[in-house]
Amino acid sequence: MMEAMIEIQGLRKNYRGIRGLNEFSLRVERGDLVGLVGPNGAGKSTLIKILATLLPADSGSACVAGEDVAKTPAAVRAAVGYLPDVPGVYQDMRIAEFLEFFADAFRLKEPARGGAVARALAQAGLEERRDDFVEHLSLGWKQRLHLAKTLLHDPRVLLLDEPATGLDPLARIALREQLRQLHAAGVTILISSHILADLEDICTRIVFIADGKNVNEVQAAASAAGPAGALLHCEIEWEGAAEAAERVLAAIPGAAIIEKKGNWRRIELPGGAAQASSLLRGLLDAGVAVLHFDARGPGLEERYRRTFGGRP
């Protein structure tokens, strides 16, 4: 078994009588990139704040990089990089000064301090603007600067709370790319976001959370193909008359047509990969000229809708 970088057992947290977390448990292994998904008020930010040592838990335990967040918070802070949902910056500081201050706050000594600041400036793409005031940066650049500041002390674990909020598409793409690189470099990442497409794209695992509890877990990497026997969505397009294709579809047990446009259908197959391949074989045997056939598990958005669809 891989080393656990985040280990949470039965975590509880109440805010003035309102439950933030309710017996939440999670294990994140070294090198995982885990997405935390849930509706507003589900407990995502509370969980990340507890892991970042900003909030104490009422009960349960949480360890990050092998250190207990309640007992050895300084050791946890040394191992963790935390990016809040609305990252604040000192507008009246120069970009290099901002990074130097946090390098000092993480007790980096020369020459590591200078190296870390130079690396952060390069990562953020702000080398040319090191003497500009932070207030002159756009939101996307401020977010990049903040992420660079978060990485100054080479954290082994990154805790990102809605990092893409307010970013334009290009900044989101750049952020996604940067997270991919960090993941490839072995950094363990826990990221909460409402932008499901981004999570689906980069995460190795997705954890659903609602009312402070674990709801469901998805192996994001496996979701595209879908394991045998699991529910699949299948898109089919053919040329010619519809009768033969309709007959084959009607013969598949449990198959349901979700969407229909001319000679194009989206079908839900409860029998997974085996049923998808027998459908394709049936269509070909019936002489249907298949132009397009794509079978995959329902996306994260669909799973989210199924899990939280009834919630306000």
Partner: peptide, 16 residues
């Protein structure tokens, strides 16, 4: 620091 949302950065650094 609370108003400009920078306090969390200080509290999660190694500053006591």
């Amino acid at each position: 620091e609370k108003e400009q949302r920078t306090l969390s950065g200080l509290l999660t650094s190694l500053l006591t």
